[in-house]
Design a protein around this nucleic acid. Structure first.
Lengths: 232, 232
DNA sequence: CGTCGATGATAAGTATTTGTTTCATCTTAT
DNA sequence: ATAAGATGAAACAAATACTTATCATCGACG
């Protein structure tokens, strides 16, 4: 489980984030002050740091600079900064500070989760960054975001790609529509529409798959969908 | 048995829900006002809270916020909110409030039960999430919803799957047809229907079982059916 | 702004599952 | 052995869920 450290003096926000991230299999810890935070980094060895700009003692920029400066101590810890205003953002991400990403407050929680995943992926440490084994003729190159079916490159949309990745990470697992929606969009989505079905249908089509005699995606009637792994 | 607390000032709805949930092995309690509700949480330690948005004293959002804020008192109590209108829903589930799910009124009771199960499952507390021991060549992976018979994956329908799970949770227990009906469909089923027999027959067929010399499901004449555990 | 591609919603058509009926077969009690 | 009730399973009917074409909407991009 990913360990996330949050340095933010807003205790309430910290709690909420902790709770929210828990749903995505991330364990969050909160430090209310930078000094405490730096201490915790050494102990916890978190996988990612969420850093507020507005802090007591010294501001987030300072903290970020310090961490980057002392990389021998803190390593290449990925950092996501929370900015109060959008204007300053330019400087944050660039060389000057070395943060990996930023997010202006107020933000959508799912947006945060998306960014976290992004950063972890870039830093090559995310579970979703594990290589994906070729299955049944489908070959995925995560770093290039390229999918080949029987040596032919497929042109997939974002959703289609994400869905395929998700499926291939858990071959033979039956996903309910809720699960798929949640994993793809980060929150509990509306169930009233056939959005998932449509998406699956589109992906199937590009994979040259048929619902009747599926080569890849099997419909589990009354439950959801399953990506067929190697059969034995 | 799961304890569900309902905070809703509509006494009628509360009664109906209580009754309905009872069929699904959930004991519901109703609090008509938030203050009373918070009190009852402490006493009852419910497994889940159903929270109406429209309430006297203060609205459901307030209550939700309060519960989340005082997690030291209320713990990580899962919350399902009932919203009068669908528009606000985005904010409910997200970080801002920390509810686990929402359901716009009016809703189908079935839908409610489904959501409750979802939430309880996510919070890792659902009985249906328990592992099932392999018995006599049948291996069930609940998280994947996968059933293997002698290493071969079986293709079961929802009802067949549910029936098998139920059987395997209580090997050697003789279920009457009523019991099976009630457990599988959650309602008092008509006693003159042979639906259970048909279902058992179909499951047997997929298991390669025969009623005469049963390997798995034994008919207890005049009573019901028994799933055969390990024999010694 | 207007276009284009991606995604969401809707609905008609189709497929699958599940319930019911029926009848052959089986069990048990006379 | 026979009758009465119970069960098994096939065939049919009803309920339910899925597929996909089509249209609407949204956001990115020029």
């Amino acid at each position: 489980m990913k360990q996330i450290l949050i340095i933010d003096d807003d205790e309430n926000l910290g709690d909420l984030l902790t709770q929210y991230l828990a749903r995505y299999e991330m364990q969050a810890h909160v430090a209310l002050a930078p000094s405490k935070g730096l201490e915790m980094i050494k102990k916890l060895k978190p996988d990612l740091l969420i850093l507020d700009v507005m802090l007591p003692e010294k501001d987030g920029f300072e903290v970020c600079r310090e961490i980057r400066a002392k990389s021998s101590i803190y390593g290449q810890l990925p950092i996501l900064m929370l900015t109060a205003h959008a204007e300053v953002t330019d400087r944050i991400v660039g060389l000057e500070l070395g943060a990996d990403d930023y997010l202006p407050k107020p933000f959508e929680p799912r947006e945060l989760v998306a960014r976290i995943h992004n950063i972890l992926r870039r830093s090559g440490d995310d579970a979703s960054m594990r290589d994906i084994k070729p299955i049944n003729g489908i070959d995925v190159d995560l770093s290039r975001r390229e999918v080949k079916l029987d040596q032919v490159v497929l042109d997939l949309t974002t959703m289609e790609y994400e869905l395929l990745i998700l499926f291939m990470q858990y071959p033979n697992k039956t996903f309910t529509r809720d699960e798929l929606m949640n994993r793809l969009r980060g929150i509990d989505a509306e169930l009233f529409s056939r959005a998932v079905d449509t998406l699956v249908s589109r992906l199937r089509h590009k994979l040259g798959d048929t619902s009747k005699t599926p080569r890849f995606i099997k419909t589990v009637w009354g439950r959801g969908y399953t990506f067929i792994g190697e059969q034995r």
